[in-house]
Simulated scan of single mutants.
Amino acid sequence: MFLQPATALSAIDRLQQVLQLQDPADKCAAVASLVIDDDSFIHQPRQRVAPGRPERLQLVRPRDVPMRGLGTAEGRAALVHAVAHIEFNAINLALDACLSFAGMPASYYDDWLSVARDEARHFAMLASRLREMGHDYGDFPAHNGLWEQAEKTADDVMVRMALVPRVLEARGLDVTPGMIARLQEVKDHATAAVLRVILDEEVRHVAIGTQWFRWCCEQRGLDPTPTFLRLLDDSQTRIRAPLNWPARRAAGFDPDEMPAELIAGH
């Protein structure tokens, strides 16, 4: 898919076109230069579009993604591929957060475009590391769980902010330290260094989700903590160990939003 000249497109058209790009390198380059310079963007009607992804990428059910240990080069490459797939989806999710919801403050769209740029940079780092390991994005099967959650939360920005950045992305804060430790054990310091950068920067992304979730709650006269817990129940979502409470606290979580037994000891 070729990008039309930016001058011929509205801001919504530009974002939709970038979201639909299939080639990861093209998408990352396009995201880096994306701006919203149209004041009418905030209130323009939205039409959701499906994200583009490489045709060679095989999507399977989550339970059908093979489990591989980190003791082999193949297993470590599969891990890098899995995280790269998460980051590629995160680009699409951040763009979709701009495209799906009209009427938010201008700073909301600025925030999510900044997240899209970060995620594109993270993907590029992982894709480079994957090539160093003799592989490319698309060499391993992956699942579509992240985008499926975007579809489930497409009708309500408050629910999106609660269940995507504050659940799915926050889960990355929890599990990445363990991955880094395991990679260091097997002497893959290069991959560990990439994941450490991503972990540090993802705290801000989750904090942005927290900020806009609470903004939505305030606009609706809702108490954020019980509202978040209700949305977890409604979606049958359970917060599980391990819990990276220092990172979650930095991202704006309230202790009452988390199981007390998981916070103990932090």
Rank of each mutant, 00 (worst) to 15 (best):
C216K: 00
G209M: 01
P242C: 12
M258F: 04
L232F: 10
L243R: 07
A247K: 04
Q236G: 03
E257L: 08
L229Y: 06
W245T: 09
R230E: 14
I208Q: 07
G252S: 10
S235G: 03
N244Y: 05
W212I: 05
A241I: 01
T225M: 09
D223K: 12
E218K: 15
M258N: 06
P226G: 14
T237Q: 12
R220C: 07
F253R: 01
R214Q: 15
R249F: 07
W215Y: 15
R249D: 09
C217V: 02
D233F: 06
N244R: 01
L229Q: 15
F253Q: 02
M258L: 15
G252P: 03
A251Q: 04
P255T: 05
W215N: 05
D256P: 00
G252D: 11
T237I: 12
D234Q: 14
L222G: 07
R240M: 14
T227N: 11
A247N: 04
C216Q: 11
W245Y: 15
G252M: 07
R214P: 00
A251W: 04
E218L: 09
M258D: 02
G209V: 00
S235P: 00
P246R: 11
P255F: 07
L232S: 03
A250H: 09
W212M: 05
G252L: 12
P259S: 11
G221N: 13
L229G: 05
D256N: 11
C217L: 06
L231N: 00
N244I: 10
W212R: 03
F253Y: 15
G209H: 02
T237Y: 05
R214S: 09
P242I: 11
F213W: 02
P259K: 06
A241Y: 11
Q211D: 06
E257G: 08
L243Q: 05
W212G: 04
T237N: 07
T227K: 12
L232G: 02
Q211I: 04
G252Y: 08
W245E: 11
A251T: 05
G252I: 03
C216G: 09
A250V: 03
C217A: 10
F213K: 00
G221M: 13
P255V: 02
A247T: 03
Q211S: 04
A247H: 10
C216F: 02
P224N: 03
A247V: 04
D223W: 01
P226D: 11
S235I: 00
D223F: 03
I239R: 13
A207H: 12
P242K: 10
F213Q: 00
F213D: 01
Q219F: 13
F228E: 00
W215F: 15
Q219D: 03
G252V: 10
L222M: 15
C216I: 00
M258Y: 06
R214M: 03
R249I: 01
R238M: 13
W212S: 02
A207N: 08
F228K: 00
I239W: 08
G252K: 02
W215E: 14
T225R: 13
W215K: 01
R249V: 01
T225C: 15
F253E: 07
G209C: 09
D223T: 04
C216H: 03
P224S: 06
W245Q: 07
P242W: 12
D233H: 10
I239K: 13
P255Y: 04
P224G: 03
